[in-house]
């Protein structure tokens, strides 16, 4: 059997452990899709695959058990999905009949966000789709996750770049009845940024996570929603070598700044990554160049907005299974 595995893999198929079989990968930016698109996934799985579908850890579909010779048929079945779910939202894919042109960057994952969740401060899938328009198709490994609030159910702290929706809580003391529901809840469930003072509430701006819990708990509307903002955490990853959680890079940044920073991060990675490796996670590159270089390059030309805060330094914790990793 003759197969060009490199070409197949580039077309977003895994080469399966089962000889001659491949697994089709279908991107779902933000993990949210029209229910009718499931028909397409179903048809591919039943006609070309082994009748099963795997939901990937990045919220995409993996359709396993496809004989390599059926790839043209899969492409044909997949074309309407690519046309509607990718091209339709503005992603530049000139040839939807050709399948996904590259597998990189990996699917942008997201929690359900403000479309359905009371805690969600942002429309996570909408932002994921904006990011998809900016960076897909590409050639750079950059795992991005979007979380609607600081609860981080999407586990964006394990991504190269995690985006966390924030809201500025606005306080109107004239509506406050001093019930302290916000104060107690912030202490218990958030960061203890609120304290009672003279029967009213004072907020510590440095502690506030922008999670919006105070707005949710307030019975009178004394706390209300201000502008939307974003926190960016960077350098998180799983992986066998040196897993670690991401750390905060930006807080109270605007949406446009987030998109610009991601574009700059892609350029930074291409400039500094270890080209002897097929791909390298962002955190390793930051470790090598130092945070100062990272910060300088990815913030170049970015208008962060008046509220934004940038980490002065980042002390990544984490651990390595093999201490030799750092000593070679």
């Amino acid at each position: 059997m003759s197969l060009n595995t490199k070409a197949i893999a580039k077309n977003a198929y895994f080469i399966s452990k089962h000889r001659g079989r491949v697994t089709a990968r279908v991107r779902v930016p933000g993990g949210h899709l029209e229910a009718r698109h499931l028909e397409i996934i179903k048809e591919i799985a039943e006609r070309c695959g082994n009748g099963t579908v795997h939901l990937t850890a990045r919220q995409a579909f993996a359709i396993p058990g496809i004989p390599a010779e059926k790839i043209p048929e899969v492409r044909k079945l997949l074309a309407p999905y690519i046309r509607e779910a990718e091209v339709g939202m503005g992603v530049n894919l000139p040839d939807p009949e050709g399948g996904f042109p590259v597998p990189l960057p990996p699917n942008v994952l997201a929690c359900i966000g403000s479309r359905d969740c009371v805690f969600g401060n942002i429309d996570t899938a909408e932002l994921a789709q904006k990011i998809e328009r900016t960076f897909y198709p590409g050639s750079t490994l950059l795992k991005i996750g979007v979380a609607g609030c600081a609860n981080d159910c999407a586990k964006v702290h394990m991504q190269d770049v995690g985006i966390i929706g924030m809201v500025e809580p606005l306080y109107d003391p004239a509506r406050c009845i001093g019930c302290e529901a916000c104060v107690k809840n912030c202490r218990r469930a958030a960061s203890g940024a609120l304290r009672a003072e003279n029967y009213k509430v004072a907020r510590d701006d440095l502690r506030c996570l922008g999670c919006g819990e105070c707005v949710l708990k307030c019975p009178t509307g004394a706390w209300s929603r201000g502008a939307k903002y974003y926190r960016l955490v960077i350098g998180g990853r799983t992986g066998r070598k040196h897993p670690r959680a991401a750390r905060t890079f930006l807080e109270w940044a605007g949406e446009e700044a987030v998109i610009q920073v991601i574009a700059n991060i892609l350029a930074y990675i291409e400039k500094h990554r270890d080209k002897t490796l097929p791909k390298e996670h962002l955190g390793y590159i930051i470790d090598r160049t130092g945070y100062g270089v990272f910060k300088q390059e990815v913030l170049a030309g970015v208008n962060l907005g008046p509220r934004a805060k940038v980490a002065k330094y980042i002390n990544f914790g984490g651990y390595a299974y093999d201490k030799g990793v750092q000593l070679t």
Binding site: S114, G120, L216
Partner: peptide
């Protein structure tokens, strides 16, 4: 507009 308790909702008051 946008002043509801949850994101993207309005408050009528």
């Amino acid at each position: 507009r946008g002043k509801g308790r949850t994101a993207g909702t309005d408050l009528v008051a």
